[in-house]
């Protein structure tokens, strides 16, 4: 993990291969009128599609909406929904809302670390798995909760983590 993801991302040059996707990006972006009030929605759609905001897409969004790149970056780094680096194919999101926290969601992270070799906020080197914590998913009655690519696993005991990781083929990934 770098010191400042924002700085790192700004200095990233647009990879020449990214231009292959230019039309895909444009199609997503041009679903909206190019008004400033649609900036957030456009960025969310791109994030949803690619699991991060590609450097070229940011450039295109900035052109389309008519706002400086710096402002798109400001938004991207301010809101939690956005990532400037690619996420793994499978994202394990451990809820750390209060109800999950006092039911020891932290031990789930311990188990994920044992299985995948990564901590919250990290992605495995092969780009397959990411682990994140999220604030609250509003499923407090099922605490502790873990969501993998949108699938909710409720009342997860530490022992079950291995089985869930196995579902996505990631057992003993870290070792």
């Amino acid at each position: 993990m770098g010191e400042c993801p924002l700085l790192e991302a700004i200095f990233v040059q647009i990879d020449i291969n990214e231009y292959e996707r230019e039309n895909e990006y444009r199609k997503l972006i041009e679903n909206y009128e190019g008004k400033a009030e649609h900036l957030l929605a456009i960025m969310q759609d791109v994030q949803k599609q690619y699991n991060y905001l590609p450097r070229l897409a940011i450039q295109l969004i900035s052109d389309y909406v008519g706002t400086p790149v710096s402002r798109v970056y400001a938004m991207a780094s301010f809101y939690k929904a956005f990532s400037l680096v690619p996420k793994g194919r499978y994202v394990f999101r451990v809820c750390d809302g209060t109800a999950c926290h006092i039911k020891n969601s932290e031990t789930l992270l311990d188990r994920l670390y044992q299985q995948l070799g990564i901590k919250a906020g990290e992605t495995t080197a092969d780009g397959m798995y990411s682990v994140e914590t999220v604030n609250c998913l509003g499923a407090c009655a099922l605490a502790p909760v873990m969501v993998v690519n949108g699938k909710v696993h409720g009342k997860v005991s530490p022992g079950e983590v291995e089985r869930i990781v196995k579902e996505y083929g990631g057992q003993n990934h870290g070792s």
């Binding site: 750390d96 809302g97 209060t98 109800a99 926290h101 604030n135 609250c136 509003g138 407090c140």
Partner: peptide, 12 residues
Amino acid sequence: DEGDPGAFMDRS
């Protein structure tokens, strides 16, 4: 924008 961790009445 229900943000309080541990509250989910608005979602419901």
